[in-house]
Design a protein around this nucleic acid. Structure first.
Length: 279
DNA sequence: GCCCGCTAATCC
DNA sequence: GGATTAGCGGGC
């Protein structure tokens, strides 16, 4: 009995004073999640190790580390090309939006339907080849933004319009951001669940402690046993100190809960004192 | 001029 | 139905 009391009291003293809430059941979970997102975060926010644009211009193959883009790259001046076929210059309606799939379509790894019918081929949505996508992805891993010169060099290397490279990077950043948002959302949701559970547990503990406080047992440890003495013959309690007694005189009085415990131990009495018993 | 958010169109 | 490509408009 007293052991249980002490255990509860210990629990109270450990948890409540510093208002500490235990860690969620899976404390490493957020870190793991964030680690998984770190590459994105790094590319998005971190200090990248950008080479100078001149490096890419002088050495465009540096984009293609370890990736075989063994395609018959036609030497096209991408800048001139894109100026001549700028989508913004030709699009004015939704229906005509896809009619500008032009010149270098044959170079892309799109469906073979593209080459079959000239009229509908322009309406087919372009898909970058695996090689192109891989190179773009590799470049994105290095830095998620491109300088104009880098964009031109990459476009030339991949035989794409600079606008396509630009759009690809924009969309890639959007995907990264979306993924990061999902990770953050998932983490916050789990965190909320953990905190809710912890809150529920703490409320339960508080209620248990309140109920315990209402019990006479609560006063056992709070009342020094040396302040009261009891006659072993008459079982009358004498107040040794100058404690204020509502019953007056201090000759005999209602027993203190501390005494009650000892009596109960003898099996002679049971708990029968009101909770509001004054200390 | 570039980027972002939103959106449509298209592919798979 | 999700993923991808790209246009459009607004913000900086």
């Amino acid at each position: 009995m007293a052991g249980k009391f002490d255990e509860l009291g210990l629990s109270l003293s450990l948890r409540c004073p510093d208002n500490k809430i235990p860690d969620p059941p899976t404390p490493n979970f957020p870190l793991n999640l964030m680690r998984s997102a770190l590459p994105f975060m790094h590319h998005h926010y971190g200090n990248d190790t950008l080479k100078s644009p001149a490096d890419y211009i002088a050495e465009p193959r540096s984009f293609l580390r370890g990736i075989d883009v063994n395609r018959p790259v036609t030497v096209i001046d991408c800048e001139e090309e894109v100026m001549a076929s700028s989508p913004n210059s030709t699009l004015s309606s939704l229906s005509g939006k896809r009619n500008e799939r032009e010149e270098n379509d044959g170079e892309r790894a799109t469906s073979s339907l593209e080459e079959e019918d000239g009229g509908d081929a322009a309406r087919k949505k372009l898909r970058l080849s695996k090689e192109q996508a891989a190179v773009l992805e590799e470049t994105f891993k290095e830095h998620n933004t491109l300088s104009p010169k880098q964009k031109l060099a990459l476009a030339k290397e991949l035989n794409l319009r600079p606008r396509q490279v630009e759009v690809w990077f924009q969309n890639r950043r959007a995907r990264t951001k979306l993924k990061q948002t999902e990770v953050d959302c998932d983490y916050l949701r789990r965190r909320c669940e953990n905190l809710t559970e912890e809150n529920r547990r703490l409320h339960k503990e508080v209620n248990e402690l309140r109920a315990l406080k209402l019990s006479p047992h609560f006063y056992m440890n709070t009342n020094p046993p040396t302040t009261l003495t009891m006659c072993p013959q008459c079982e009358r309690v004498a107040v040794a100190s100058s404690s204020s007694s509502a019953t007056g005189a201090g000759v005999t009085r209602q027993p203190n809960p501390a005494i009650e415990i000892s009596v109960s131990k003898q099996g002679q009495n049971s708990n029968r004192f009101s909770p509001g018993f004054a200390i």
